[in-house]
Structures are given as C-alpha cells and as structure tokens.
C-alpha cells in the first residue's frame, strides 16, 4: 500500500460520515483532524473511543461536527473542552452520552459481527435512561432471580482515524500496546491512518513487532504526517505539549479566539509547510 498525501487522506471522508477517534492518551491523529478542517468537511458524527479530547474539540470548533457519541470530552490538565461546551450550549451539536466500557463493548460486538453484547453496571444511571437504543433484559442464564442486564447494539463506524508510529511496505501499521486502535479498526468500515514514517519489511514477519501491529487488511489509507499526534504524546516517541494545549484552551474560550487559533495553527502552518 503506497502512502498518499495527508490532504488526499482527508478527502476520503465524506460529509456526514460516522468517524471514530481515539482519545488523547491513545494515538489520535491531530494532523488528520486539521486536514479535515482544511477540507471543510461537514456533519461528522464523531465517536470518542471511549472519550474525546483535543482533535474532537477543534473539529467541533471549526463547524465540522453534528453529533458526538462519547463518555467524556476533556483537555486533561488544561480543563474542559471549550468549543464542545459552547456548541452544546448553543444547540449546534447533539451529544450522545455513554460510559467507557459501553463504547468498547459496542465496538467489540461489531468486531465479532454479532448484533449486540451485554454489559454489567448502568442500571439506575441516567445514561441508560437517555439511550433508547440500549435495552435491559433478564439474564437468560440466571439461576437465581431475574438478574437484569443491559444489551448494547453493535457499533460500526464508517471510518476510524488514528496516528500510528509507523507503517511497513505491506501497509501494516504499528501501534504498540494501544490495542484499542486495533479494536476500532476491526469494527470500522475503513481505517485511515497517519504515521511518522514508513519502514522496509513486514511487521508480521517479526515476532517482536507482530503483536503491536494492525494487519493491512483493516487499513484503507495511509499518509505520512511527521509529529502527526502533536500536541498529544506518541508512545515513547514524543511527549505531550501541555503549553500548546493550554494556549489553545485559553484562546478557544471565545469563538473569535478559536478562529484566530484555527487560522494560525490549521491554515497558516500548512501554507508555510507547503512553501
């Protein structure tokens, strides 16, 4: 699989797509989120696996998003996600709340190709009360009493985007221990992946690399984006840029501030890189 350009990768995602994103501790592709903003994508239905962070907030701020299914949206130590909060208050996005293991479980059902999976907990939570698509049934195997349990439908996103450390010549990508990226790739129709670099060989031939790899069969497109997770950390490659996120959190408190940030960090940066 030959890498394509970042902008070409972003062009693969049509308006209205359901797009799953990992959170800030698990390989989000901030580079691709910025490219999606430049492409002017609209009406994305985001899924936070299992929560949402920086990439989600900038996509919402740029008006690319119509709904978010997630278990939380936060900028970590930099606090609440400002454009998410503002968009919810203004009625510009629909928020579908979940709880972390429910998101994982719905994706695992899709991964297995079964229509639903059960999950413990949740009974008595208003999350459940606001999820007409989740059902409570008696445990059919219970030996003592009814034992109510929640059933969650399979979740099959149109796309997942994440940032892997590297790809090989065969199009396998390597994410190390961040295996939720594998679960989302298995469960989604198409996986678009940015990488720091492409290396010779085949990860699946190397016993030490194979367990951290995602087979190319699940990958629909790869683009090289050096520092593509920035400002988020990438495994042991580079750390979290707290100052960058704090500045964003300050500027994005207002719509004008976000627009100025976006002009500088999403559009100008790209123009400079192209020169």
């Amino acid at each position: 699989m030959n890498p394509i350009s970042l902008e070409a990768l972003a062009a693969e995602v049509p308006d209205g797509a359901m797009l799953a994103l990992p959170p800030d501790n698990s390989l989000p592709s901030v580079a691709l989120a910025k490219a999606l903003i430049r492409r002017g994508v609209r009406n994305l239905r985001l899924v936070g696996v299992p929560v949402s962070g920086f990439a989600t907030d900038i996509l919402i701020g740029a008006g690319c998003v119509t709904s978010v299914q997630t278990s939380a949206v936060s900028l970590g130590e930099a606090g609440f996600a400002p454009r998410f909060s503002a968009a919810l208050r203004a009625g510009k996005i629909k928020v579908i709340d979940a709880t972390c293991p429910a998101i994982h479980t719905m994706l695992q059902a899709a991964e297995k190709g079964v229509p639903f999976m059960p999950l413990r907990g949740l009974i008595g939570s208003d999350i459940l009360a606001n999820r007409p698509d989740w059902k409570v049934v008696p445990n059919p195997f219970a030996t003592n009493g009814e034992d109510p349990i929640v059933l969650l439908p399979a979740l099959n996103p149109d796309f997942v985007c994440f940032h892997a450390l590297m790809a090989d010549e065969e199009g396998n990508v390597w994410v190390g221990r961040r295996r939720e990226c594998a679960t989302i790739a298995h469960a989604s129709k198409r996986a678009l992946v940015t990488v720091e670099r492409v290396v010779p060989g085949n990860f699946l031939e190397d016993e030490r690399l194979a367990s951290g790899a995602i087979n190319a069969t699940y990958i629909s497109g790869i683009a090289i984006a050096e520092r593509g997770a920035r400002p988020v950390a990438l495994l042991d490659e580079y750390g979290f840029d707290g100052a960058y996120v704090s500045e964003y959190a300050r500027m994005a408190r207002s719509e004008e501030g976000f627009a100025a940030w976006c002009a500088r960090e999403v559009f100008e940066q790209k123009a400079q890189a192209a020169e």
Binding site: A72, R120, L128
Partner: peptide, 13 residues
Amino acid sequence: RFPGSFGSAFMYF
C-alpha cells in the same frame, strides 16, 4: 456541562 461520565456507570458497580 461537565466532561462526562467516563467509566463511572460501570466501575461504581
């Protein structure tokens, strides 16, 4: 709006 429920609706049980 607070960030969200995270895993609380499962972990607490």
